[in-house]
């Protein structure tokens, strides 16, 4: 079968591809929904980040941020996450070219980079734990773990989502799925961008504080 033939084989009841619903704006529903979700998610992280900022410097007990934060390590992990965004962009480009092989490669690597980031994060969490920073310890512990934990959860769900696509691509029908991948990508980029903000608020601010 040639790929041209593949495209012509689907029937009316094969709903994976055919009837992209009528849309008033011309933008697919899924994309609009994802943008709306991300707007909402901004508020989620906005609340978490504001809480962190308001409580910054208000902890009554050690360890304080400067004592535990390891800027180089987190810079590395942040870099990994940023790179995963690049990989995600390549993934989307590949699927848009119908290049399934590249698609599998890039999406796999995106997952791996996401996992590396999560690995860094669990390393950081255990490290903090050993240095005596728990969620109960002080405000820093509470705000830090809740905020980065929520972000980590986002990354984990993203990895699960990407991994599902990767697996699906081996036995499922990827025709017409480019838009779904694009939506997944939107989510992934957002999670990365949020991390930049979090990284700035937690780590860089502390770093500047130490320097001064």
């Amino acid at each position: 079968m040639s790929s041209a033939a593949v495209h012509s084989t689907h029937h009316g009841h094969d709903d994976h591809h055919h009837h992209e619903e009528y849309s008033y704006t011309g933008t697919p529903n899924k994309k609009i929904m994802m943008w709306a979700f991300l707007a909402s998610d901004c508020m989620f992280f906005g609340t978490l980040i504001s809480t962190y900022i308001i409580y910054h410097g208000k902890s009554l007990a050690a360890p304080y941020p400067v004592e535990v934060l390891d800027i180089p390590v987190t810079t590395a992990s942040s870099f990994v996450l940023l790179m995963s965004s690049l990989l995600m962009a390549l993934t989307v480009a590949a699927i848009n070219r119908d290049d399934l092989k590249k698609f599998r490669l890039w999406i796999f690597l995106t997952c791996v980079f996401g996992l590396i980031f999560l690995g860094f994060q669990s390393f950081e969490f255990t490290e903090f734990y050993h240095q005596g920073l728990r969620i109960q310890t002080n405000l820093f512990g509470s705000t830090f773990f809740t905020m980065t934990g929520t972000h980590g959860l986002h990354v984990a769900l993203g990895v699960l989502w990407l991994a599902s696509w990767w697996i699906y691509s081996f036995f499922g029908d990827m025709r017409g799925k480019a838009i779904d991948i694009e939506v997944t990508g939107l989510y992934w980029h957002f999670v990365d961008i949020v991390w930049i903000v979090i990284f700035t608020v937690i780590y860089l601010v502390e770093f500047v504080g130490v320097g001064a």
Partner: peptide
């Protein structure tokens, strides 16, 4: 041959 098909 070299490019996997979108549909299995």
């Amino acid at each position: 041959v070299s490019t996997p098909k979108l549909a299995p």
